[in-house]
Computed example of a mutant assay.
Amino acid sequence: MLNVNSENTRSLGRRGVLALLGGVAAAGLLPTQRARAEGTSHSVLAFDGDALVVAGEQVWRFDPSGDAILLPAPRSPIRALACHPDRPGRLFAARIGGGLDLSGDGGRTWAGTSDGLPLAQVTALAIAAGAPDTIYAALAGDGLWRSEDAGTNWSFVMDRPWLAEAEREVLTLASVNLASGMGGIWIYAGTDQGVTRVPDCFCRWQDVVAGDAMDALVAGTPRALEAPLPKGEPVRALVSAHSAPDRLYAALPSGLWASTDGGVAWENRSSLHAQALAVDSTDPDHIAGAYNTELKHSRDGGATWATLAAF
């Protein structure tokens, strides 16, 4: 049963309450509930432990118990969101217009943590797999920055990817702990030309390849893939599964794609045109997705989807 704080409910009004219910449905708490309103803005999603956080112009937190909490509005709408499954409650949010905020209590309070970053739009965020204090931020027109102390200090680590004869903006980021790479950590970037990646030595962006990735990086002669992710399409969302490090999901205009081998081979799972994705930290088959006016979820790795809310 959904429990909504009465004070928050009075302040939300009809559209806000309906959006709140829709977000709860996206977390899988109300599988038959549908919500409608006159309009909504694009939202970003992230699982914080076993709760789902939905952020945009407002921020909601949906707990598995059924409680739905409308959190204090951010200083400006949120463009990107990241949280680490091994550090529940710690959230990073990139604000539209520039700036980065950190929450240590699951989004209830926020503080700026972008000192040292250039004054540019943060287009994507990822927290390093296996390292909750390390966060990567992609900046428009600039490149990839890293903080190893939870956002207190930042350093530039990598230029933007060079794809199809031009530098490309990073639209989405994912950090994956694989059995190859310098320390096993790879940073995957979704661009308007597909997916590329770099090991955490930040030596060079490279296409995802078959075989020994580090050998291919040194040799510069990767083996061709038999089932690559389509190139030339913008990657709107890219997420990795914490409990299954080789599992990746990508949202493209051609649909929802999935890889079970770290991005070497991809399968088109459905025609869902998602703009945001999130994966349950304990169940790699449980995905939440958002597209324009709909929230959906899948419990079979993206093969089938249920519409949970329509705004």
Rank of each mutant, 00 (worst) to 15 (best):
P118C: 12
S76W: 08
I185D: 14
G56W: 06
G141D: 11
P222E: 11
G255R: 03
M182V: 09
D149A: 02
D50W: 06
L21F: 10
L178E: 03
L217P: 08
I135P: 03
A94E: 12
A224Q: 15
D261L: 11
T293S: 13
T282F: 04
Y249P: 06
L173R: 10
S147E: 12
S281E: 01
D192R: 09
H242A: 15
N5G: 09
A140G: 11
P31M: 10
A73P: 05
G104V: 07
L178H: 06
I69G: 05
V53M: 08
V59I: 15
I127P: 04
G49S: 14
K296A: 10
D149H: 01
L256M: 15
R236T: 12
E165R: 10
R34E: 12
G106V: 11
C83V: 12
D215A: 14
T134K: 01
R87Q: 03
A189G: 13
D101H: 04
L252V: 06
P31W: 13
A251H: 08
V195N: 03
P88K: 15
Q275V: 11
G151K: 06
E148K: 00
A213W: 02
V24Y: 04
G23E: 07
P132V: 07
Q33E: 11
R160G: 14
L18T: 00
D149R: 00
H84F: 00
P88L: 15
V44S: 10
A310L: 14
V24I: 05
A150F: 07
A68W: 04
A25G: 15
Y291H: 03
R36S: 15
L29A: 13
P199T: 00
Y291Q: 05
L295V: 10
V208E: 12
G143V: 12
G194V: 01
D149Q: 05
L45I: 12
A179L: 14
R204N: 05
T282E: 14
G262T: 11
A37H: 15
T260P: 11
A140W: 00
Y249C: 09
D142R: 00
T221D: 15
G16T: 00
V24E: 08
T9A: 15
R299E: 12
N8S: 14
P64Y: 06
A213Y: 01
A131S: 13
M158P: 03
R15H: 10
S155H: 13
G16F: 02
W186S: 00
L81D: 00
L252N: 09
L21D: 02
R87G: 05
V44K: 11
V279L: 04
L295Q: 07
N5E: 14
C201G: 01
P74F: 01
A93T: 10
L12A: 04
D142H: 03
W154A: 09
T172C: 09
K296E: 06
I69K: 01
G301L: 08
G23W: 02
W257P: 14
L18N: 02
A138V: 00
T293H: 05
